[in-house]
Design a binder for these strands. Structure first.
Length: 747
DNA sequence: GTCTGCTCCCTGTAGACAGCATGTC
DNA sequence: CTACAGGGAGCAGAC
């Protein structure tokens, strides 16, 4: 099927021709025949790299040509940026919406194609972004993630909400191979397109001793080294290819990369350059090891790395200088980094409660699918390593010829469901108790399970919980959210988290009991936030325990939570995480924190990021519910955001001053904006440079007037929050109380 | 002295979305 | 409370 004959917009066709694409791949043609361009819903289940993206693009460009608007939903922020790059500059205006990269919401709506993570879409729905109503085409990338334990329920609800809202939405689901594609397709009222056609041949096989078994085809390789993974990689690299090794732990990833590096011992100017770049970014042992490995042509990849480190590794691999990457599953589902040979070394992975368990077939496929770079490799090879000859057959059956798992709905997760119900009520999707099951009837869960008995019970519990928490109220048959509930929904924290936060603060305030308010302690508050289900906490190692216990007893007075015997693990995980953040706001160095907790710099970033988010939510919640703690909460938020001790707070308010410059000024006895003038321009300039000095001294001079006023937030900020969009179903809900009442407070 | 190879024993276990308002070295 | 492999310690042998 010729691309030019499909009546597609000029720009798309020409950009394809430029990349040498003039004819559709067979599965793509199949999609067109099934009505892709006539607005039919499709569920497309075809291998990676067989042109899913182009299918989506064709449909989206059609919509844009007809003045439609498209939403492309992805599971990862990194994937959002990747797609953004890919879609940009082909005609339609493209925008991206993720937590950390965001053009203003209303500006977003001016785009023709919007790329967003599923959580961001959910958040936009909760905040009633008006343009969501004009979406005509929804593309769900990696739709099988509806099965994901922690995030699947959100995705399912997002799809359901969007369909409910825009009745004639065209839905295109892109999915890896799954066991029950028909079930998913019928939920979406979609035609199914399946195929295992690939642009590059994929050989899947097992390696044993010195031989690769690809079904009938057998290939013996040289085995100079003791380890199978090294032999496989060296063989591939000597053949001019690149190799990707999947392992099951970070330590293994690093260890493997080290061995590969000393086996390869490459010495090339490009590698030297990358290594120097990494050396500059390295402040930790991990960073130095990475730089040393890259110098010789190997690298590792896992979530403990900083973003810039990952990017350098990815770039080095794409340009071909880095030959081998050993990786944890980060790279399996993440971005597109194909290699000629993929070695799945560890097909067992630690699973809580079960010990080592085999990875799901679907995950094996995702990893195997990375093999073979289109146009660059003659074929791709995915290799499992067998311990012995008997094991080899087992691996064939267990992974290569095994059918992919079915996907199931994860909507019966109580925690997620409670938050989702709150958001349904808060945004007006659901107005009465009867409408709730009606709405849920449209979900994949009910589609699959038919019966609503089980989920009905969860829903009942959830409604009761929300009512008791004062997040929703009942007026006759009407359900509506209180201002507290509305805020919780919009902050995108789970109701449980909100209750833990407000509960802890209220308890300290002594409101409930009439007792005298207790003092606020950052450490105690951080500890509480770490016990929240929205915060993910660090693992505990055996060697951590004595440090943790000592810390616990030394700081008992400041902590807000006791660690009980039956939830030791959780308790100490929360404590460890709180300790990390506490170190961070004591200005401990990256290096020190990493070695103290046995983590990578990326983990610090993630932890701080999560804490930042919860602190922001906390400051909003405290303004509304427990205003007497508003100031200390906000103060903690600022300290975590910048990673500074309390003494730097006055300086940090100046624009252009971050943690480093503030510290430098402070150590030179300039402790507050007022001190700047006393010190004089020349001294300030000597510390932070002329340009910054000029900038901040001007600000300091203007202090106390308009600037200072702006900083105190208006007391009723949470009420005056712009409610500029009309609620989903049109008219305002008459039953919503116009003024909030202190939920749960003394009546 | 240093590198390598071997065995034994102990240790520890992947990943990552969301708010918000602008400015780090 | 699960299973397994990596890697350190300790030692011997080769250069």
């Amino acid at each position: 099927m010729k691309l030019e004959e499909l009546g597609l917009p000029e720009k798309l066709v020409s950009s394809c021709l430029k990349r040498g694409i003039s004819e559709l791949y067979p599965p793509q043609a199949d999609c067109v025949e099934k009505g892709l361009l006539e607005g039919k819903n499709l569920l497309i289940s075809i291998p990676t790299a067989s042109g899913k993206t182009l299918v989506a693009e064709m449909a989206m460009h059609r919509h844009v040509a007809n003045r439609g608007k498209c939403l492309y939903v992805v599971p990862l922020k990194a994937l959002a940026s990747e797609k953004f790059e890919e879609f940009s500059g082909k005609g339609p205006k493209t925008g991206i919406a993720t937590g950390d990269y965001d053009k203003k919401d209303e500006y977003l709506g001016r785009n023709d194609i919007i790329i967003a993570t599923s959580e961001k879409v959910d958040s936009l729905l909760r905040n009633n972004a008006a343009w969501m109503g004009s979406i005509t085409c929804l593309v769900v990338d990696e739709a099988h993630l509806i099965d994901s334990e922690d995030r699947g329920a959100t995705l399912e609800m997002v799809i359901t909400k969007l369909r409910h809202r825009n009745k004639d939405l065209q839905i295109i689901g892109l999915t890896a191979t799954i066991g029950n594609p028909r079930a998913l397709a019928s939920w979406l009222d979609a035609d199914l397109v399946t195929s295992d056609w690939r642009p590059v041949e994929l050989k899947e096989g097992v390696f044993c001793r010195d031989t690769l078994y690809f079904g009938e085809e057998i290939k013996t390789i040289e085995t100079p080294k003791k380890n199978d993974d090294e032999n496989l990689c060296i063989d591939c690299v000597n053949d001019g290819g690149q190799c990707l090794v999947f392992v099951n732990s970070r330590r293994n990833a690093e260890g493997c990369a080290k061995r590969m590096a000393s086996a390869l011992k490459l010495d090339e100017p490009e590698l030297e350059k990358l290594s120097v770049e990494l050396e500059k970014a390295a402040e930790t042992d991990m960073g130095r090891i990475l730089a040393a490995c890259v110098k010789k042509g190997a690298a590792f990849h896992h979530a403990g790395m900083k973003r810039d480190q990952r990017e350098i590794v990815e770039r080095g691999f794409r340009q071909g200088s880095i030959r081998v990457i050993s990786s944890t599953p980060t790279l399996a589902a993440g971005l597109n980094l194909p290699a000629r040979r993929v070695v799945i070394r560890d097909y067992l992975r630690f699973k809580g409660g079960e010990g080592m368990a085999p990875i799901p077939v679907r995950e094996y496929r995702q990893m195997a699918g990375r093999a073979g770079r289109p146009h660059l490799d003659p074929y791709g090879e995915a290799v499992l390593i067998a311990k012995g000859p008997e094991a080899a057959n087992g691996l064939y059956e267990e992974f290569i010829s095994a059918p992919a798992e079915d996907v199931t709905s994860r909507l019966d997760d109580e925690r997620v469901l409670t938050g989702q119900i709150l958001s349904l009520i808060s945004t007006g999707f659901v107005k009465t108790e009867e409408e709730l099951p009606e709405f849920l009837n449209e979900t994949f869960y009910v589609h699959m399970n038919k019966s609503t008995a089980y989920i009905g019970r969860i829903v009942e519990d959830a409604v009761a919980l929300l009512e008791e928490a004062g997040m929703i109220t009942r007026t006759g048959e009407y359900l509506s959210s209180t201002d507290y509930g509305h805020l919780v929904s919009r902050l995108y924290i789970t109701p449980q988290t909100a209750e833990i936060i407000t509960g802890a603060l209220r308890e300290r305030s002594g409101r409930e009991t009439g007792a005298a308010p207790k003092e606020f302690s950052e450490l105690g508050f951080l500890q509480v936030l770490c016990t929240t289900p929205d915060m993910y906490t660090l693992y505990i190692k055996k060697s951590d325990m004595d440090v943790l216990e000592r810390f616990y007893f030394e700081n008992e007075a400041e902590l807000w939570r006791e660690i009980s015997f039956d939830s030791m693990e959780e308790g100490f995980r929360a404590l460890k995480t709180a300790m990390l953040v506490n170190d961070w706001i004591s200005e401990a160095g990256e290096d020190l924190i990493c070695s103290r907790y046995g983590i990578g710099p990326g983990d610090i970033y993630n932890t701080v990021e999560g804490m930042n988010w919860l602190l922001h939510a906390s400051s909003r919640l405290s303004s509304m519910m427990i205003p007497e703690f508003g100031d200390p909460v906000r103060e903690t938020a600022i300290r975590v955001q910048h990673g500074i001790k309390r003494e730097l707070l006055p300086l940090i308010r100046l624009k252009g001053i971050g943690r480093v410059r503030a510290r430098r000024l402070f150590n030179n006895n300039i402790m507050a904006p007022e001190d700047l003038e006393k010190a004089g321009f020349d001294r300030v300039a000597a510390i932070v440079g002329k340009k910054i000095a000029q900038q901040i001294m001007k600000q300091a001079a203007g202090e106390g007037s308009a600037d200072a006023k702006r900083r105190t937030r208006p007391e009723n900020e949470y009420i005056s929050d712009k409610e500029d969009e009309v609620p989903v179903n049109g008219r305002d809900d008459p039953s919503r109380p116009s003024l909030f009442s202190f939920g749960g407070g003394p009546e």
